[in-house]
Design a binder for these strands. Sequence first.
DNA 1: TTAATTGATCGCAATATTACAATCAATATA
DNA 2: TATATTGATTGTAATATTGCGATCAATTAA
Lengths: 109, 109
Amino acid sequence: MGLTKTEIFNDKQNKLAQMMKALAHPARIAIIQYLLKSQACICGDLVEELGLAQATISQHLKELKNVGLIQGTIEGTSVCYCIDPKVWKQYKSAFDSFFVPYMSKENCC
Amino acid sequence: MGLTKTEIFNDKQNKLAQMMKALAHPARIAIIQYLLKSQACICGDLVEELGLAQATISQHLKELKNVGLIQGTIEGTSVCYCIDPKVWKQYKSAFDSFFVPYMSKENCC
DNA sequence: TTAATTGATCGCAATATTACAATCAATATA
DNA sequence: TATATTGATTGTAATATTGCGATCAATTAA
């Protein structure tokens, strides 16, 4: 156990859940917000910005990279990270189509 | 360890991460989608709909209840669940304001 | 070449999550 | 009242996540 039964759900559900999971941590939210704001590419001064150890930040960056949300390019000894606009747009539209408006019927709970 | 350092992030970041986490499982995505579609309140025929054990569904429902996304009202022996439109709207707008459009600069990664 | 800087990776410890069988509590039916 | 039905809760096992120190690899500077 401890393992999600992905096989009983459809692709969209699994993908959306994975997207949510990628952002289900304040550090990763903060990283994305930082990259959104400082449009220009940012290397690991995220370590200073957020108050987490370098190894921890590196791990969160890896997770964001794994889902394709960010890219990193090596620049000398440092690595420049930035958001992948294409994937970001995919996320945006996936979330948009999930969050349809909801009106409860009167006869409800 | 194994514990998220919430104190170093701001309220919005923590809250948004928590919202993402609440939906970071295909079963909970499926439950919400089911409740969105069958506007009318639905009890635990979710157990039949999804292929998970009753105890597991109950646990996922509890998590969705904990964040306020759904409500349950007892109706005889069964419990009727439905989405809380107010909270749903809050989620919608929180996600909307996070997913701002992103244009990468040319000089970027 | 040697030393410094940067960031990835490994290994560990602590906690969280997922899933389920078994059981419990409450209501409904016979 | 006795039995069924429904769904919550408990306990347990397996796996995942979070965080960090230590180390490693690559590049840069001296």
